[in-house]
Design a protein around this nucleic acid. Sequence first.
DNA 1: CAAAATTTTGACCGGTTGGACAAACGTTAG
DNA 2: CTAACGTTTGTCCAACCGGTCAAAATTTTG
Lengths: 213, 213
Amino acid sequence: MEGSAPRRTRIQQEKRELILEAALEVFSANGFRGSTIDQIAEAAGMSKPNLLYYFRRKEDIHETLMQRLLDTWLAPLRELDDIGDPLTELRSYIRRKLEMARDFPRESRLFANEILQGAPRIMPMLEGELKTLVDEKAAVIKGWMRAGKIARTDPWHLIFSIWATTQHYADFDVQVRAVLGADRGGDGRFEDAARFLEQLFLDGLKPKGNTSS
Amino acid sequence: MEGSAPRRTRIQQEKRELILEAALEVFSANGFRGSTIDQIAEAAGMSKPNLLYYFRRKEDIHETLMQRLLDTWLAPLRELDDIGDPLTELRSYIRRKLEMARDFPRESRLFANEILQGAPRIMPMLEGELKTLVDEKAAVIKGWMRAGKIARTDPWHLIFSIWATTQHYADFDVQVRAVLGADRGGDGRFEDAARFLEQLFLDGLKPKGNTSS
DNA sequence: CAAAATTTTGACCGGTTGGACAAACGTTAG
DNA sequence: CTAACGTTTGTCCAACCGGTCAAAATTTTG
């Protein structure tokens, strides 16, 4: 048995890669329904029928893109390990997620688009693979709490808050840049965000040498 | 002078309201390009030409919806005042934003859709009204920091993180519910989130009576 | 009631979109 | 050269979409 993946020539591999790159650009900017095959074909430098020779349906492109995305997207969480200092481990998870928002904003937006529209194409994955992974890591975090290594809170909502704060810099990028303005909205914004998030997640907002009244 | 708003009969007021309600449902679920006038008309219980009698273009509906949205959406931030205890003030801002995510998830998703696609229709507002408001409130927060009432951080990124964490429960609702599962994903999830966010923003994750090693 | 004004509808139109298809083109192996 | 195979393109189509229009139905007004 050869497995179910169809055999592909070298040129097919390359062209499919080209199409997926173009489709990521278009889908992430316009959503699935807002994107046309023509747009993708043009971005990939080929004609529409030619594109349809490599992917028979528009949905096939989106599906392939989404499958690839999910692996790399969840990699940082998978790396969250029980070895090492818990606070350090969480800090580097936050850093990695923020780096992904900086380096792969299109992937983040593609994912956000899908979830926003009710996740019609990846619902089974959310309830299956994703839930399993999060539950597993929540158990790890709970262990750290029982050991007194980090404060006691809800691990699931902790993970949500890390996702939300980091992906915000990819998904809401135009808003972030508009509000920060020309001077502070440049490349340095990710370092500012990293500093802020580290402080937020470690120390919160209470002033340092000050017990609450 | 009567002002520039056109005079409208009672029935026009009602039908326009009906259409806007239906359009909010459809636009927030499918985005602007992903929604059709037919869908909105059907959701509003009228024919397409009839709908177009009240709003001449699809974009007019979206624009009206967006204008109304922005006022109510920014109301909590406008209320952030210099009077009262800073930590209490921030805590209730977070609570109000989370309540809005719970009570007006469609509005949140409509806004998220617009920003995700590059905010083509509200860019001037982001750079104008929104930036002005945020700058103003950031100055207030900076005052609190100078007075030693809250820890020193970046006020802009603080506001971003509040937006991100609270709106996450509206925009990524399906994911949140899928990950939490049937038992914890019910109505109680917003109270869990409120408790978690309060702790996160006030105390962070460091264990209580424990100086870092 | 009847005229006037407003609201609703069916039919229609031009442009776009996802996708099919056969013919043409290129490449490689015998 | 040529047959076989893989690739590319022009053409076409049916469905959909945003929007128009004139006529019909309804409501308001005198």
